[in-house]
C-alpha cells in the first residue's frame, strides 16, 4: 500500500515538459532534531538536555526530500538540501546526499544560533536567494522540537512566492506550475505558479533508505559550510540568530502529570468501576 502511494504521487504531467538535462531546480530544507523518544527534560529547571539524545533528521523533512528526489528522477533536475544548525547537523546532510541529493549546504555560525522562526526563515531565504534560480522549495510540515510549522510559510513570504501547507499529494507538475492537495481537515486542490514552496505531511510518500553503495558515494561528497558572512550581502547579519529574533523564551516548564489520579484497577470489579466512571462523565453536562 505504501509503495503504491509513493509511486502514484505524480500522476500526470501536462503542457511543456521540462527540458531534459535541465529539469527542476529543487531546494529541500531539513533540520536536525534530537530523537524525541530519548531526549531528557529536567523537571526541576525546565532544561532540555540535547546532548542526552542523538540527532536525527526531522522525520517530516525526509518526506520533503523524498518528494524532491522523485520529481528529479521522473523529470530531471537538481536537488539541493540546506540546513541551519550546529556543526553536527552535517550528518543529516550527508544522509540526504546518500539518499540522492546533489548538493548540501550547512549554515552554521554562532551568529545564527538562538534563532526564532523569523530569524531562521531569514537565514534560509537568504541562502536560497544566494543560490539563484530555483523552481520548488520543499519543507516538512513541522519540526518535532520547534513544532511550529512556521518556518516554511515564512520563507515563502520572504522569497515572495506562493506556498501550500500540509501537502499530502502532488498531482501534476509542469515547467511553470504545480497542482497539490492540501490537507486542512477538508482537502483542497491548489495550483501554484512556480517557483513555489510546499510543506509536506507524512502521507505524501515513504522515504527511501540509503543503500550501502549510496552511503559510500556520499562519503566522498562534500557538505558546503556557510557562515553568516556568506549571507551578509543578502540580509544584514543583525537580522539573524538570537539578535534578529522577535520572540524570547522566558521560561520552560515540564507539564506535570500530577493532576491525574493514576488509579490502577485490575480484576473483575474493574468493569463495574470503569463503567460507573464512564456513566458519570457521559451524563455530566
Amino acid at each position: 500500500m505504501k509503495a503504491e502511494r509513493s509511486l502514484g504521487i505524480i500522476c500526470a504531467i501536462y503542457g511543456d515538459l521540462p527540458m531534459s538535462g535541465q529539469g527542476f531546480n529543487i531546494i529541500v530544507l531539513i533540520k536536525q532534531v534530537p530523537d524525541i523518544e530519548k531526549v531528557r527534560f529536567d523537571v526541576e529547571t525546565g532544561r532540555i538536555d540535547r546532548s542526552s539524545a542523538p540527532g536525527e533528521t526531522n522525520p517530516f523533512d525526509l518526506h520533503a526530500l523524498e518528494a524532491g528526489l522523485q520529481i528529479k528522477e521522473r523529470f530531471g533536475g537538481f536537488v539541493t538540501v540546506i540546513s541551519m544548525g550546529p556543526r553536527q547537523a552535517e550528518s543529516s546532510l550527508k544522509d540526504a546526499l546518500a539518499r540522492g541529493a546533489d548538493r548540501a549546504i550547512l549554515l552554521t555560525d554562532a551568529r545564527l544560533a538562538g534563532a526564532d522562526t523569523i530569524a531562521t526563515a531569514k537565514a534560509l531565504a537568504a541562502a536560497i536567494k544566494k543560490l539563484g534560480k530555483f523552481d520548488l522549495v520543499l519543507c516538512g510540515e513541522k519540526t518535532v522540537d520547534g513544532d511550529t510549522g512556521q518556518v516554511g510559510p515564512e520563507v515563502a513570504e520572504l522569497l515572495g512566492i506562493p506556498h501550500a501547507t500540509y501537502v499530502c499529494e502532488i498531482r501534476e507538475i509542469t515547467r511553470d506550475s504545480i497542482r497539490v492537495v492540501s490537507d486542512m481537515g477538508d482537502k483542497y486542490l491548489y495550483e501554484l505558479k512556480l517557483p513555489a514552496l510546499l510543506t509536506v505531511t507524512r502521507e505524501l510518500n515513504s522515504p527511501r533508505l540509503p543503500t550501502l553503495k549510496d552511503l559510500l558515494r556520499a562519503k566522498r561528497m562534500q557538505v558546503e559550510i556557510w557562515t553568516a558572512d556568506h549571507l551578509s550581502e543578502i540580509v544584514p547579519i543583525d537580522q539573524l540568530g538570537f539578535q534578529g529574533s522577535k520572540t524570547r523564551v522566558v521560561k520552560v516548564v515540564i507539564p506535570s502529570t500530577e493532576h491525574r489520579r493514576g488509579v490502577i484497577l485490575k480484576g473483575d470489579d474493574a468493569v463495574e468501576k470503569i463503567g460507573e466512571i464512564i456513566l458519570r462523565e457521559v451524563l455530566s453536562g
Partner: peptide, 10 residues
C-alpha cells in the same frame, strides 16, 4: 514544544 514534552513561556 518538543512534541508536547515541554511548555515554553514566550
Amino acid at each position: 514544544a518538543f512534541t508536547g514534552n515541554i511548555l515554553a513561556h514566550i
